[in-house]
Design a protein around this nucleic acid. Structure first.
Lengths: 239, 239
DNA sequence: CCAAAGCAAGAGCAGCGCTCTCGTAATTGT
DNA sequence: ACAATTACGAGAGCGCTGCTCTTGCTTTGG
């Protein structure tokens, strides 16, 4: 009663992994649109029809790669956060933003696969939603920590009722106690971050802020201000 | 010496237009990835090879559609701006943002074509850059007007030297006199706007701020604040 | 009026995703 | 240990794709 009992089971697991690896390799080189089941099979020395024993369709293989990409960028963000003291929420926010950008720049096609135009068939989000939410959760966790530590400069403007309700629903869904106004601002910052990364990767900034290092750094600071994260320097000044 | 002299020229121009129309129709239904030259030819009662008299490749046809899409969203923004008094810069900013979102929601596949993952061959941006810059120019024009009318609350934080240089270069390139700090913030707001629209369209907000009407409205207001656009109400209070 | 150029059509090539069949090998139940 | 079942890879094949090339026909311009 091993984890993988028979030799066939072990072979199947290994081949499934190898197929995904070959596909990811091809994805990194050619992009999602040019990813071809037949080419993956060729690289593995198999015939194309044999792949269908492991993935029912090309879209299912892509869905697996999508999940892996979400996990990859989230792992990078989590690892970056772990390197910053918990008390330095602004530093952690910065770390998540930089990790997301770095990962995107080193995995452009995988980034495009998950944050670009959805694949034609529009894959079911049910499998991907858990992985997809890890990045926003990482950002929200930083905000929650700042709020918990009474270091969040929450703006007191009130929101439209339906927006406040949505913000409260997100707080409940994620189990992260973040006030509606801060929650809304965090989502705004999240969309800004990924819009900026997309623009950089997809060439929308070529005439203006490209190369985007300085712009990115500035934007991250301004968005950290925007969500109410203070500099770790003046964390002592006020209670 | 007519604009189109011969019958053949007229036929060619008309057929080129009809091909683009059929392609756009197919794009709207199926998406860019499923757009097929053969299907377009079929719809027009032609044989597929005949299309190559008008477009050298599928990618060239797509590039034309990309340009049309840029023009379409920019036209929508310009039309919306024209409906708001020039003195109400914040209202004009709002109008551009709403027009962009409305256009994107009514032309999702065309939006994805231009702001999503680039097509595999990565089309030369030279043809598209003029059309692509119309939207950021529309946003910057609003900021420039506010600055000119001394109604822009410019933040006085100084920027990294290379960022300030880039901002000045954009100002020179566009001929729009916007101070570096405001320029940077406008670009941040631009990336936020399109990141938010992308997320709404591509399903990234489904678990949180979807439907996104209230969230979008709030984000637009906060970003208008962010770039320093005042409410039109208090435009009289200060000089 | 005639050569040149533009044109649509058809055949064809290589590639794609996917399905189905078939012989073989591994697994399971008795 | 043997038989029945199941999983598997290979191969052929279908309909589709983008694209090329050749073949006649028509329009154009000198």
């Amino acid at each position: 009663m091993n984890a993988s009992r028979t030799a066939r089971d072990r072979a199947r697991a290994e081949l499934t992994r190898e197929i995904k690896e070959a596909a990811r390799r091809q994805l990194a080189v050619e992009g999602a649109q040019r990813l071809s089941l037949r080419a993956v099979a060729r690289e593995l020395g198999m015939v194309s029809s044999a792949l269908y024993r492991y993935f029912p369709s090309r879209d299912d293989l892509l869905t697996q790669l999508i999940i892996d990409a979400y996990e990859g960028i989230a792992d990078a963000a989590d690892a970056a956060v772990a390197g910053i003291p918990a008390a330095d929420e602004r530093g952690r926010w910065r770390a998540v933003a930089n990790a997301a950008r770095d990962w995107a720049r080193s995995h452009p096609h995988e980034f495009g696969l998950v944050y670009g135009t959805p694949v034609p068939g529009y894959q079911a989000p049910t499998d991907t939603v858990a992985s997809a939410s890890r990045i926003p959760i990482a950002l929200l966790t930083v905000v929650r920590d700042a709020h918990e530590n009474r270091r969040l400069a929450v703006p007191d403007l009130d929101l439209a009722p339906e927006l406040a309700a949505q913000a409260r629903a997100v707080a409940e869904l994620t189990g992260l106690d973040v006030p509606p106004a801060a929650m809304t601002r965090a989502v705004v910052a999240w969309t800004q971050l990924f819009g900026m990364i997309s623009f950089e990767l997809f060439g929308q900034l070529v005439g203006s802020m490209d190369p985007a290092d300085a712009f990115f750094a500035e934007a991250v600071e301004r968005m950290a201000d925007f969500v109410g994260l203070r500099d770790s320097d003046d964390s002592h000044s006020t209670g």
